[in-house]
Amino acid sequence: MNYSDLAGRLAQIGERIARHSEKLEGEILGRSAGKLASQLDRFEEHLESHLASRKSRELFLENLLRSPASKRHLTIALLKRASREVGGKRLKSEDLAAAKREFIHLVHGAGKQDQAVQFLKEVFAEAVHVESGGKEKTLLQREFINLGQLLDEDFAKEISARSIAELRRVAAVNGIRFTDKTNRQRLTTLIRRYAQRAAFNVPAARVASSD
């Protein structure tokens, strides 16, 4: 059911009640009507506050604070910053849930819903920004494909010309997992294996990089 279905239904019921109002009587119907009326009171209250435009911004702010983005990125430190920058006040709460409530209260009191929403949106946008690996990454990926195409002897020569730090960079950029304890020999084996795999799995890259 959507809200226009509900509206249609209420209009229809209203009309029927009006048409038959003189015939309506008895305890069962009366009690049910009483319940409906008090439910309607509550519904009207929610409806009113939702329709007031400020209220819909309040609701959006509350949704944003409950959102998956908040769950991942919102810290108490950020909320304290938001509170200072948006509301000019310090938050007293020390746990996140309480701080959120305090923040909402403060923002609503100051009528700064729009600013608070904007602040949070910017914070969430910044939080997911990732640096692309840039040129360095592209070069190390190309090097990886090239290594994968070499015959054993040439590969050994290329590897021996590199420091362990350089080998680590090639491995790390190309998705090979290793630890601080992984020695040069093991790292060489891993690079050999996966670089060869990449060279035959991505034949287009092979052609492109060998010309």
Partner: peptide
């Protein structure tokens, strides 16, 4: 994913 990136570059 690395092989995908290599393929995209090519």
């Amino acid at each position: 994913v690395n092989e995908l990136e290599l393929s995209m570059a090519a």
